[in-house]
Design a protein around this nucleic acid. Structure first.
Lengths: 101, 101
DNA sequence: TATAGTTGTTACGAATAGTAACCGATAGGA
DNA sequence: TCCTATCGGTTACTATTCGTAACAACTATA
């Protein structure tokens, strides 16, 4: 499951707090097609839950189940390893709205 | 890198001891095409080293670098998680030579 | 009516994975 | 010499998955 592209990043971004769909696409840099697909799979695997808030426009938040939160130590070890062994990378450039002068 | 299919299994199987190409294809269940491709990538990333023993037929053993062995804690946490949260699976059936009666 | 925000779905070309056949070097035996 | 076998891969081809863009359904607001 962690070997599937994006899943580690999805879980990582949910470890902190529950997140909305559109927030996740932006912060992870995944397309909505794939995020939708991955979240369905993770929900079926019992790692993620989907919470619907029927406001307008509808708000949907995804969060981790206990099984999902139990992956925290795995993610921590991955972080430790990458801090020690991977060269520091430039952050990907922000897409800015063109500034009007 | 761990998100690429097979890489976690390849590293896991090298954590114990160095392995030959043909042993790895059998134990992991990966095709030789992909194993070859993945090992090249992992070698380029400095995670795996390739040792050639010019016997006949030639013997080639793959082993982990220090950077690769540093992934041991990650793999351990993954193991712990799966033992706690994943149902026990049937081992994939061995391919047996047909028994002659 | 038109527009915008949110969470998706559909369509389709591009990239990656999987399968099977083949290659080159070497050695052993007929 | 010719055939066979082993090892560590390549090559060729098909199937699956990914990535991008366009669109859909719902509803509130202008």
């Amino acid at each position: 499951m962690l070997s599937k592209r994006w899943n580690a990043l999805i879980i990582f971004s949910l470890l902190g707090e529950s997140q909305r769909f559109c927030t996740m696409t932006e912060s992870i840099g995944i397309s909505n097609r794939l995020l939708s697909e991955r979240l369905k799979e993770l929900e079926k695997d019992g790692i993620v839950t989907r919470n619907v808030y029927p406001e307008t426009p509808v708000r949907i938040e995804y969060s981790l189940t206990e099984k999902g939160r139990a992956l925290a130590p795995v993610m921590e070890e991955i972080q430790k390893w990458s801090q020690e062994w991977l060269p520091v990378q430039e952050a990907p450039e922000e897409k800015q709205a063109p500034t009007v002068r």
